[in-house]
Write a protein that binds this DNA or RNA. Structure first.
Length: 255
DNA sequence: ATGGCCTCGGTTCGAGGA
């Protein structure tokens, strides 16, 4: 069983890449963020033709999340019931005995801004809700764009990024609060090479220079963490024409 | 160098992303 997350930065633009990637990497579950599509425009037929069921929660222009699955999708819930939010950032469902949460955490723009405050309030409610979800679903996987680099090892230039959005103490504390729920960062369950990232700015030839940050994560409950045998970042789609600025993260789970 | 790029909406620029 392979589960993956990918911020596609517009599914309208990136659908060909998503289909191409799934053909080469036929994961069981793929969580997408920043689909940027209203639900009436979601490419259901193309995704079903590729062998995937789909659940989605979208809006115009911004945000939007989806779960693609080769296995039946049940009990779909949109958003966090503990947090009133017009922005479509969370969708969850039960797949193959596992509760899957797909999340697009707010970016926060700059430390101290209104958007940063919204990010911290959003994360506070997210942690409270995930605590409930863990009690209800021992096999819980939380995949998505967290917009947080948990540690300096996840940042190409920790000095330049120190205290900046994605790296600030309050954001890292919010991430640690999720970890304190007993969720495991699947990527850090295994020895990894240094300087592996999931996002690179479109500017400055950042990808070619590997000026990246690791902000896309797969968090696993203890039950799933004990089944996890690998977690990797697939840089390949970032090398394609007209790429998303994020690239997929994949976790492998034993039966 | 308060930059640089990409997407969207909607028009040829501004907002938002990270």
């Amino acid at each position: 069983m392979k589960i993956a997350t990918w911020n596609v930065n517009s599914l309208k633009v990136r659908l060909p890449q998503v289909l191409q990637w799934l053909e080469a990497s036929p994961v069981d579950v793929l969580c997408l963020q920043e689909t940027k599509l209203t639900d009436d425009k979601f490419p259901v037929a193309e995704i079903e033709a590729a062998g995937y069921q789909v659940a989605f929660a979208g809006q115009k222009t911004y945000n939007g999340v989806a779960i693609l699955s080769r296995h039946p999708i049940a009990d779909v819930v949109k958003n966090n019931p503990l947090f009133e939010d017009e922005q479509q950032r969370i969708i969850s469902a039960t797949i193959a005995g596992m509760r899957v949460v797909c999340a697009y955490v707010p970016n926060g723009q700059t430390v101290g801004s209104d958007k940063y405050d919204y990010k911290l309030r959003w994360l506070d409610a997210f942690a409270r809700w995930l605590g409930d979800e863990l009690e209800a679903h021992p096999a819980l996987a939380v995949l998505g764009d967290y917009n947080i680099a948990p540690a300096d090892a996840d940042v190409h230039d920790p000095v330049a990024w120190a205290g900046q959005v994605l790296c600030s103490d309050a954001e890292r504390a919010a991430f640690e609060r999720l970890i304190a729920l007993d969720l495991k960062d699947a990527f850090r369950l295994f020895p990894q090479a240094e300087k592996l990232y999931s996002w690179w700015d479109y500017r400055q030839m950042a990808f070619r220079r590997n000026m990246g940050v690791r902000i896309d994560h797969i968090l696993l409950s203890p039950t799933l963490a004990s089944r996890c045998t690998a977690c990797e970042i697939d840089k390949l789609p970032r090398k394609w024409e007209q790429p998303s600025d994020h690239t997929p993260v994949i976790a492998t789970l034993a039966p």
